[in-house]
């Protein structure tokens, strides 16, 4: 039925087709929840400047913990006097009218920046770099998979071997080595994700192509004398899109995790701009005395990944049902 539905949609304007495709999601409750979660974060990212109550980089000195917690023993920071010192600082701040207790909904981090604002601005970065990196990985992986699956022969041998070698690395080991060698920056994260994910995408595309290359319409195109590249991209690729759309949702979730992990390990997007993984890393040592600094970014990233995973599950459910 899926094919019929899609056939029925053909010939209508592309935008309408996409909208109707999304409407198919209604059939899957899980998929709807996923779509809602993703949509929520997309809206947050788009309207970040309107939603964020503060400048994400502004620090409130009064709220910053006295001294550097990376040097202090976090266990002792809140012992006896230290607690009183912190309270006194907060009181002074209140008297000066700099803020009131309800100002920082999610509290402030270890250098006195508003967690909520950083969370909101952090959304922009995640939702910029994750799709970009995923897109680049597909842009490399799809032609590789098409070539391996359709041309076969030595192209298949070489590409399969290369991807086997790259996939034999435990994935995070590969990321850590690459980023530590070429340095941490947005571009380098995109490069690393492309390098590490393209082989996996290639395998999936290759598998799909091996099945599709024996269809009649491919033979027809070959008889018409169409070039190999045209057959691969115009005849085969559009018919492989179903599983690839599901895979791209899962992969997007995984890339978000990757970017988060890199930030968490101190190998991600450079500070001080807000980045979810980086926020967890910066405040990690304060977690035993002030968990709010790390828990909210954790919830944010988990809910976004969950959104993509549920969306993928819903899409798969729909594609299998028909």
């Amino acid at each position: 039925m899926a094919d019929q539905t899609i056939d029925a949609l053909r010939g209508e304007p592309i935008l309408l087709r996409i909208l109707k495709g999304i409407a198919l999601l209604r059939e899957s409750g899980v998929g709807m929840i996923g779509a809602a979660l993703v949509l929520f974060w997309v809206v947050v990212a788009l309207f970040a400047p309107l939603l964020a109550p503060f400048d994400p980089l502004a620090t409130l000195q009064l709220l910053a913990f006295p001294g550097d917690p990376y040097v202090l023993d976090p266990g002792k920071t809140f012992d006896g006097q230290a607690v009183e010192e912190v309270c006194a600082l907060i009181e002074t701040g209140e008297k000066q009218g700099k803020y009131d207790c309800g100002t920082f909904w999610l509290g402030t981090d270890r250098v006195g920046r508003d967690v909520l604002s950083r969370l909101i601005y952090g959304t922009q970065r995640v939702l910029l770099y994750a799709p970009l990196a995923t897109f680049c990985a597909y842009a490399v992986g799809i032609p590789m998979g098409l070539a391996a699956g359709y041309l076969r022969g030595w192209a298949d041998e070489v590409l399969s071997f290369v991807s086997n070698v790259i996939l034999s690395f435990p994935v995070l080991v590969l990321y850590v080595i690459i980023i530590a060698t070429i340095g941490a920056s947005g571009t380098n994260i995109v490069i690393a994700v492309t390098f590490a994910s393209a082989p996996g995408i290639m395998r999936i595309v290759r598998g799909l192509v091996l099945d599709l290359r024996n269809r009649e319409y491919v033979f027809a195109a070959q008889t018409r004398g169409e070039s190999a590249w045209r057959i691969m991209f115009v005849e085969i690729l559009p018919n492989a899109r179903g599983p690839l759309i599901v895979d791209s949702c899962l992969r997007l979730g995984y890339v978000i995790i990757t970017i988060g992990v890199l930030g968490f390990l101190g190998l991600g997007l450079p500070p001080p701009d807000p980045d979810w993984g980086g926020m967890i890393n910066e405040n990690r040592l304060m977690a035993l005395v002030a968990p709010h600094m790390t828990v909210f970014p954790c919830i944010a990233i988990s809910s976004l990944v969950l959104g993509f995973n549920l969306l993928a599950d819903g899409l798969r459910e729909i594609s299998l049902r028909d």
């Binding site: 899980v30 988060g260 992990v261 967890i280 990233i301 969950l306």
Partner: peptide, 26 residues
């Protein structure tokens, strides 16, 4: 069980570690 497994695989280690730490330690 399926939904449970999707949820737990959506929470990466670097997010579940601080959350569990906050709960069990703090």
């Amino acid at each position: 069980i399926s939904v449970l497994s999707i949820i737990t695989t959506s929470v990466p280690e670097f997010a579940s570690a601080p959350m569990l730490q906050a709960f069990f330690v703090f």
